[in-house]
Design a protein around this nucleic acid. Sequence first.
DNA 1: GTGAAAGCGCTAACAT
DNA 2: ATGTTAGCGCTTTCAC
Lengths: 345, 345
Amino acid sequence: MSTIKDVAKEAKVSIATVSLVVHKHNRISAETSKRVNKAIKKLNYHPSRSGRRLVSQKTGNIGFILTDDHFLRSEPFYTRIFLGTEFEARNYEYYILLTTIPSNYDVKDHPPRFILEKNVDGVIIAGKVPVSIISQIEKYNLPIAFVDFYPPSNEYPVVLIDNISGGMAATQFLIKKNHKNIGFIAGDIGHPSIYDRFRGYKMAMDYAGLDFSELNYIVDENYTARENGYNAVKKLLEINNDITAIFACNDAMAIGVVQFLNEKGISIPNDISVIGFDDVEADLSLDPPLSSVRVPKYEMGIEVMKLMADLLKNKDATKKKILVSVELIDRGSVMDLTLKIPMPA
Amino acid sequence: MSTIKDVAKEAKVSIATVSLVVHKHNRISAETSKRVNKAIKKLNYHPSRSGRRLVSQKTGNIGFILTDDHFLRSEPFYTRIFLGTEFEARNYEYYILLTTIPSNYDVKDHPPRFILEKNVDGVIIAGKVPVSIISQIEKYNLPIAFVDFYPPSNEYPVVLIDNISGGMAATQFLIKKNHKNIGFIAGDIGHPSIYDRFRGYKMAMDYAGLDFSELNYIVDENYTARENGYNAVKKLLEINNDITAIFACNDAMAIGVVQFLNEKGISIPNDISVIGFDDVEADLSLDPPLSSVRVPKYEMGIEVMKLMADLLKNKDATKKKILVSVELIDRGSVMDLTLKIPMPA
DNA sequence: GTGAAAGCGCTAACAT
DNA sequence: ATGTTAGCGCTTTCAC
């Protein structure tokens, strides 16, 4: 491995000059610059991170934290976000240190090692994490940015899904196809993202003048896994069998819904239409393919890295909130009721 | 952040002494040691990585490379391996730098940045990767270890699944339940892991004296995705409808098999038994749940990290090959034919 | 058993 | 426009 000294010798300049050339300072003559760059190429020189770090008192690393639950989700949701972050980090010459924490992280637990050892310049937190870890990290006085999680205070830059618009879009899509009895299936409606999707749903219903009693149209489970979707739709149809369409707050639950309906021989979309949220379809190839609201996961990862870079450059950077927009993807799990020929009673 | 100087001042010793205490050198008196350790605690001192790295000429990082295809697989297979590696790395005070490469990586592409910048002490390669990247990395003269991939040469330590035993176990499980017409479904049988599973299958068939012609029992697709499983079983049943059990070379394909059989109204396990390989999460939510061969993914990650640590400590470490053993998990997708009441013809 | 000092590769303030 | 030099935090050799 060649060092700055080797380059200096090769180009017959001082190491300071080499450093200046590397950093593209404009007070170096074009000629010297060229000579130095030639030497750099020839020796395949890459500045040592360690040297740089020592003098700059920066690590060049960003920590990326999420719960193991989220990391191991069978749909590549957070992994896609991570990929976006890792990709964007390259543009800023940062490295990402990925670590998971237990989803039941406790105040007594140690924060991730890279924080203890101050081996990161900032921390990105992806998805819902226990509040205890946030207060832990705050003690270390590190810049923090969030993605897909409402931070506990307004102090932090954050990238969020535009859940309200998404919830509205999904619902309006159903309404446009002439559905009036639209059920909503939630998993922990207290979770901000879920609640916003619900708000979107409600707003769309209100705008369309569709009056409904929540008791008969909404089922809330305490988690958003497949089995919860399965149970939720079961309950929903017990309390209300005029339902013609179901909006599940995420695809995992929607998959449970589909499973239940398939089992009962209820045809999708002929008997009941289903729409989800997240668009994990592309990764799962479901049967039938599920209409959903696409969330730009990769882009979210990019955006949060940008916010972090901003924050690192300028400690007083506005604590920006970014709402990434979503897009409805129709794959045929919703029927247009205006086209349906009524069955004889 | 406190430095070694602060600790030295606090404990009224030289920085050299602090360093020796930190490294548990035994030529320091117990008393001094105690005083220094107290100061370390008091100041919450953690040695700076950057300082250490500079002098040791080591980065303290290990690169972890896999293709984006693999990282984004909907079943958390490689993510679990990564988690094991990351966890074990903590014991050796290493950090893991995770990066993906395109699955169509080409000689013209740049190797991962952490290699160019020499920001890792070694590289772990997980799963099948294009050979071109291996030869690229070899140029940088970095220690390499593999997990779940047959390296192109014997020079490397590697952690592999005991696919032959697994293939035998799955097949023998079927045989014990009195199946004789057992189909094998592969995706790229040229892939060493798949081929070994196939060898296990064949050996078990041979041992049991079950003669069969490959043409009628094996279908090979060129990939192991769900749709390939779907297509494979379709073909298989066209050429041979005496099949009572199907051994799919991995769960992804098995899921495709289940999908096809469900669609055709062929009952599992009453009409046809199915067994897979890998034991991925998705099996559980499958209907019916899939019997499979469990692969200890997390442990594989741990093992490969151990090999890497070995290699780093002792450049001439034996190039160990570790075969991790697998375990049959029965979830009821296999029927015991001895219990089956024959239908009247 | 402990300390002084050199030096790892780099940046930046200062000198020329 | 370019060079000299101090110093970032640490480890390690060599004195004492």
